[in-house]
Amino acid sequence: MTTDVNASGVVRVHVPGRSVRHDLRAIKIVLHREMLRFVNDRTRMMSTLVQPVLWLFVMGTGLSMLVSRGPGQGVDFRTFIYPGVIAMTVITTAMFSAGSIVWDREFGFLREMLVAPVSRASIVIGKCLGGGIVATGQGVIILAMAGLVHVPYSPSLILMLLGQMFLASFTITAFGVSLAARMKSMQSFFGIMQMAIMPMIFLSGAMFPLAGLPAWLALLTKINPLTYAVDPMRHAVFTHLNVSPQAAAALNPGVHWFGWRVTTGVELAIVALMGAALLGVAIAQFRRTD
């Protein structure tokens, strides 16, 4: 911004126009702010790890005997739920990142961003990228525990899981931003989040196999978008395990449409398309935000 004084003594203020360079810089700044906020908030970092660790090592250990006596004989239950716990970690963290928009609105920072000479789309994209990177970073902590639940530290597995974690967390952040754009209080946002996300997590097959389900439950898992984020992670893990074909069929049956097993590529494409659609919704919501 520059100023000058004309002959009549009136001060003119020149605000730089919007450009692609300014929008890219805005994306970088919003992304950087998200990462700094997360790194400096140690309490949030630790609290979002408590639930996944409890599921993995407390519930997983307590229920492992049930699986070892069933069709998944020879597979530790903690190994089975490990991909689901990763998904739960990144999804929860991504939603918390999206919820910070409501916090920014309450303290007036959001208004400052909205009046900046950049497109609102750049703010949303930076927010979603930041949420995706932060959630993936949180998932890396769970990823580091793979050896404790008999999952090998394979470079190819780690790379696959990192890519899938980022895709899932970006999509969930876009979903959260589309909700948070119209919320006025943190209480309302987290109430909606609990109502929307928790059922989707439990119906995604994160904590139970998708094989042999009642018809009504099988239908709910197939129409649940998070199923297509969790199943590729489980498939990636099981392809790196030495288990019997019977155990693999029982614990990693995949998602079937009319008898056809949905491939991992199709599942990831579904998640990517949902992410793009939700990003568009979030941008539209932000353009209507005061």
Rank of each mutant, 00 (worst) to 15 (best):
L279W: 02
R25D: 14
A98H: 05
Y82Q: 04
S169V: 05
M59G: 08
L226R: 00
G275D: 00
T92D: 08
F286M: 15
F238A: 00
H256K: 11
G147K: 01
V237I: 01
V90H: 03
N6P: 02
R182G: 13
G254V: 06
P52C: 05
H22Y: 12
R78M: 13
G191I: 05
F57Q: 04
P83M: 02
P52K: 08
S185E: 15
I27M: 15
V20Q: 06
V271G: 00
A144Q: 05
G191V: 06
M195F: 15
M200C: 11
P52M: 06
M65D: 13
A269E: 01
V39Q: 11
L54Q: 02
P225W: 00
V262D: 03
L179K: 10
G254A: 06
L279P: 05
R69C: 06
V140G: 00
E34Y: 12
G212N: 11
I142E: 07
S244N: 04
R18C: 08
I172A: 11
W257N: 10
G132I: 06
I141K: 07
V230T: 03
G84P: 00
V115Q: 01
L251E: 02
Q187G: 13
M186Q: 15
M200A: 14
L268R: 10
L56I: 04
F202M: 09
A276N: 09
M95T: 13
A236S: 12
P253R: 08
T221R: 06
H32F: 14
A7W: 03
V53N: 05
A218V: 04
V75E: 02
T79M: 02
W55C: 00
M233N: 01
R33Q: 14
L56Q: 04
A26Q: 12
L162W: 00
G139R: 08
M88G: 05
A87K: 01
V271A: 05
A144F: 10
V262A: 12
I27D: 05
E106F: 07
R182I: 12
M46P: 06
H240A: 10
A168C: 14
R33D: 11
G137E: 07
M113E: 14
Q164L: 14
V85L: 06
L226F: 12
I123G: 08
S204C: 09
I201V: 15
G130T: 05
L241H: 01
S100R: 13
T263R: 10
H22Q: 15
K222W: 07
Y153E: 06
P16N: 03
R78K: 12
G176M: 03
I270G: 09
T263C: 09
Q246S: 12
T221N: 10
S185D: 13
I123Q: 09
A26Y: 06
G9D: 02
F38E: 10
M113Q: 14
V39L: 14
L110P: 10
R69M: 12
P71W: 10
S8T: 11
A272D: 06
G131K: 03
A229E: 02
T264D: 14
L31W: 14
A236K: 01
I86C: 11
A282I: 06
F57D: 05
M165I: 05
A250Y: 02
A174T: 07
W55R: 02
V13G: 02
V85F: 08
G108E: 01
